[in-house]
Nucleic acid binder design. Sequence first.
DNA 1: TCCCTCTTTTAGAATTATTCTAATTTAGTT
DNA 2: AACTAAATTAGAATAATTCTAAAAGAGGGA
Lengths: 135, 135
Amino acid sequence: MVDKTLRDILQAHGLKATFQRLSILEYLMTHETHPTAEMIHADLSNISLATIYNTLDKLVDVGIIIVIDTLKDDKRHYDYYGEPHYHIINSNTNEIIDADNFDVAPLFEAARQVSGLNITGFHIEIYGVEADQAK
Amino acid sequence: MVDKTLRDILQAHGLKATFQRLSILEYLMTHETHPTAEMIHADLSNISLATIYNTLDKLVDVGIIIVIDTLKDDKRHYDYYGEPHYHIINSNTNEIIDADNFDVAPLFEAARQVSGLNITGFHIEIYGVEADQAK
DNA sequence: TCCCTCTTTTAGAATTATTCTAATTTAGTT
DNA sequence: AACTAAATTAGAATAATTCTAAAAGAGGGA
């Protein structure tokens, strides 16, 4: 049934449900680690690195996952994006916290007013430091 | 006097005011193109590419400029960040629009509540498509 | 169920943006 | 004017990501 759900998610986005895609999607849905391609490859070592990259690209294209590439390590991190959310990044540790306690509707409206575009998505990263070393 | 202001900006952030840094900072302040290191190097060809990268890193570190690396071209784009603002990205054209008609204070407060961190900055990118091709 | 076709996967090579190195120059101070 | 730590530089090195072209697999139709 997990498998069924995963198939449904892929097919709803027009992607064939291959073993590799099911594995990678499940991995992203069950890990809160915001992994890189290499990290996924280390755990799913029976899937080639090229396929990891190909699949991640596809999942990003259809909007199932998103990329975080603002970390200091210069690698792309991936995040399952079932529910839209924003990220809080601890600049001391590079830890990424998922959060959704903010309504983006007013921001969308502001962006629409400025640009005239139909808004399709967002990426928000908030940076912070541990409170006792703020200054 | 422009030069004076540029020196002041650099020195206020603890950076020596070299010819190269003055040139690159002025370039970023006077171009709305959100250029890459290569684009800057193409225009300021008397400055070595290594120095362009070094200088951009320094300017990012002290917060004078920010990086946009969510574009499809897989290159880092840089943006003078004199006044905090957010970005609206036209997914059809990759055009980046600077906007500031949104108060981030409530978002900062939400992030502080979730994380307990002292919030130091933000990165917001809103994606959109031209209205007549939204669906 | 069994083809058929188009898509996906794969290993390894290739690419290229960015970083590193070590030598030279420079900014800012004494 | 001299000093010293910091900055610049050319070119080599790195490594994340992309490409290639051959093999395997998914899913629809008969």
